[in-house]
Write a protein that binds this DNA or RNA. Structure first.
Lengths: 250, 250
DNA sequence: CGTTGAATTGAAAGTGATCAAGGCGTGTGG
DNA sequence: CCACACGCCTTGATCACTTTCAATTCAACG
């Protein structure tokens, strides 16, 4: 179980998760860092399970998760919900809205959260900085890679593998913004939310989790996950972090 | 801004599928159209089932499908394959490679195809044109929306709905590049390929197709699909074209 | 200490997977 | 011009991962 040199930082405050994330591509000049840090300064507090934006809306600003968790989701006519992405600090909710105009899905907080609202013109200012523009472009493309990986997860892996894979992905992403402690991190998801992300029922999620616990692979309770044997979890779920395009030892 | 009454064109040649596609956002000046048309001029011919690019590669050019079909896919350790996207004329294979460096999935032709190789510097020239840059940005974001829609398809719809949904999506996309005739289009997929895209077995695909045929919904044989009752297929599969962000009557 | 949302547990039913064999169409070679 | 081969489509029987439906236990909280 490799725990190479780099130990996770402490939880960053303000917009620093975003900075940490964008700097995985390339270090940014101080000026850019300051600009990004400013984004998170007057973020709004939101309660858990509140819609940040809904399908069909055409906002004139972009949302950034500064603190807490959120999820993209789509609702089906029969009321079923499919979560399409989990958003953690440093993630943009709707970078695409400046071009696509209308939201084709909704986004809601999962926990209490701080969400920054960034007006369109401010985004344009940001994009004018080559380093930032490139980093945002990178973030968008990684989001796309994550979506492809979810398709594989849902389409071809059984529930046990899929849950393990999701835990590995979130571990790497959380670590990348300095929000892990050894091999644990806050994972404030209900079993139903996990199921909605993987296309399985909550009772099945429950059974799989119990099996993982009984095998000593993980602990998962009260919103926190600890991976006791990361390597084993990676192997069991066929996880390969290459699609996250982070040049970093896990 | 709907394009009323517009009947599908005949199969476009050269890079015109790309032009048709990019002009769904906004009409392009003649100069841009010519630039784009030139891209498809000396495309390479490829046989069916040939890799265009493979996971791990770091090409210095971008691929564009000029004619024929291709698919993105990932292979699992046990040999299972998950198709992540179908690529039709006018689709870029790997626009992201300039930023992400390394491919995290592979792409292969499904049919004989013409594939254009566009060097990196040429892409930069293209991106320098604001209209084209915006259109490429739009295309990337729509690709992302399609991925989200597939997640819903695979995660929450049963095989019957999922297959119907896929047929509707491809119908709209094919129509958008002028490759439909009434409610039919070339759909050169084997039942196994359909299954690999939806995470189901070819045997099951076969049974579902038979049911759809027996209900008079569709005809699908020898690489061509005809949808006899498009509205019914949309309803049965919960298809809503909004995520394709095409302002066009179907 | 009752309320409430989430986690558990049990039993029964299903959609889709597996495994295997047979049918068909087309292209190639004798 | 026909036989054979190969890839793909079909069909049948059986198996199993997941879903359903329902009820129970927990844990946090006012």
């Amino acid at each position: 179980m490799p725990i190479p040199g780099l130990q996770p930082e402490h939880a960053p405050s303000g917009g620093s998760a975003l900075i940490a994330k964008l700097e995985t591509v390339a270090p940014l000049p101080d000026e850019d860092r300051e600009t990004l840090a400013a984004l998170g300064e007057n973020a709004r507090e939101m309660g858990a399970r509140r819609n940040i934006i809904r399908e069909g809306e055409r906002p004139d600003h972009v949302h950034l998760i500064v603190e807490g968790w959120a999820a993209r989701y789509k609702l089906l006519p029969d009321g079923a919900r499919q979560i399409t992405a989990f958003l953690i600090p440093g993630d943009f909710c709707d970078l695409h809205i400046t071009i696509l105009r209308e939201m084709d899905h909704s986004i809601a907080t999962l926990t209490r959260a701080k969400v920054a609202y960034i007006p369109r013109d401010r985004m344009e200012t940001l994009s004018a900085r080559p380093g930032i523009a490139r980093a945002l472009w990178w973030a968008t493309l990684v989001d796309e890679a994550v979506l492809r990986s979810w398709i594989v997860n849902i389409g071809r892996r059984d529930a046990y593998e899929a849950i393990g894979h999701l835990m590995c992905e979130l571990y790497v992403r959380m670590k990348n913004v300095g929000l892990t402690h050894d091999h644990s991190y806050e994972l404030p998801l209900t079993q139903e939310e996990v199921g909605d992300a993987l296309g399985i029922t909550p009772v099945h999620v429950n059974r799989v989790l119990q099996r993982m616990r009984s095998e000593g692979l993980i602990s998962f309770a009260r919103g926190a996950l600890t991976i006791h044997d990361y390597q084993a979890l990676e192997n069991a779920s066929g996880f390969n972090p290459n699609y996250l395009h982070i040049d970093q030892r896990v």
